[in-house]
């Protein structure tokens, strides 16, 4: 089984994030493997251990992403590829990333591609489906279970809290939802082994792509933090007066009705 995992390095949204000049400040931020991609790596390793084959983790990003790729190798992936776009792409979007990944993957004869459901930074959830579309491959998003028997694939996917069962075939792209598995920690022997595993670095040139072929289709107008949460207010007085006041506030202050 030839398995590819799409992995993004992202900042940890549980840590403090600060925005200055319309950009997220990377200085104080902690960087991690996008948590949904961690499920993807874990699932790929489990399927590989069960069915044999090879797991390759691919990331589009800059040199810093090497650490996250090495971590995936330490978890048990076999190979890693970093498509370094630092010099070529200034403002990429989901189209950019998907186009690059599809170009890389088109001749790889992947049986299964696993991506995260969304990246917790941009939160678009588009890259997986777009890659599948460009490759002309079927895809299933937000999966919480996958069983492979020969060519057939049995999937359970999360639909807003409900489950949907799907039968499909390889080759296939799926995106991982929380609950798919419990990602392992990279063990220390795993970390030591990861040093010796192959990590290739490519640029757009190596994929015969021009900068304008991957130009973003969208433009980011502004980046800002959500407004600070104000302290709550407790209304007082007769119940009917409170209701009256609440309606007024919803109307005039919150402007939701």
């Amino acid at each position: 089984m030839n398995i590819y995992v799409l992995l993004k390095r992202t900042f940890d949204t549980e840590e403090k994030i600060s925005v200055a000049n319309g950009q997220i400040q990377e200085d104080g931020a902690e960087f991690i493997i996008n948590p949904y991609d961690e499920y993807a790596v874990e699932e790929a390793i489990q399927i590989r251990d069960d069915k044999g084959g090879e797991v390759t983790v691919v990331s589009v990003g800059n040199e810093e992403a090497e650490k996250q790729l090495r971590t995936a190798l330490a978890m048990g992936a076999d190979k890693a590829v970093l498509i370094n776009t630092e010099d070529d792409v200034e403002n990429g979007d989901q189209y950019t990333t998907a186009k690059i990944l599809a170009e890389f993957l088109k001749d790889k004869e992947a049986d299964l591609i696993i991506a995260g459901n969304v990246a917790i930074d941009g939160g678009s959830g588009q890259v997986g489906p777009r890659v599948a579309d460009l490759l002309g491959m079927p895809y299933v998003t937000t999966i919480t279970e996958i069983k492979i028997e020969g060519e057939s694939v049995h999937i359970v996917r999360d639909v807003e809290g409900d489950s949907e069962k799907i039968e499909t075939k390889l080759p296939l792209l799926v995106t991982a939802q929380q609950g798919l598995n419990d990602p392992r920690y990279p063990s220390l022997p795993g970390i030591m082994k990861a040093k010796k595993k192959p990590l290739d670095e490519l640029e757009l040139d190596d994929l015969d792509l021009d900068e304008d072929e991957v130009e973003a289709k969208t433009e980011t107008i502004a980046v800002f933090l959500p407004p600070k949460k104000e302290a709550g207010r407790i209304l007082e007085g007769e119940l009917s007066d409170q209701v009256q006041e609440l309606v007024n506030l919803l109307h005039s202050e919150a402007k939701v009705i």
Partner: peptide, 15 residues
């Protein structure tokens, strides 16, 4: 080193 950094991350999240 990268390995030491990875170990630190791993032990931190484990702990």
């Amino acid at each position: 080193t990268k390995e030491q950094q990875m170990l630190k991350d791993m032990v931190r999240s484990f702990a």
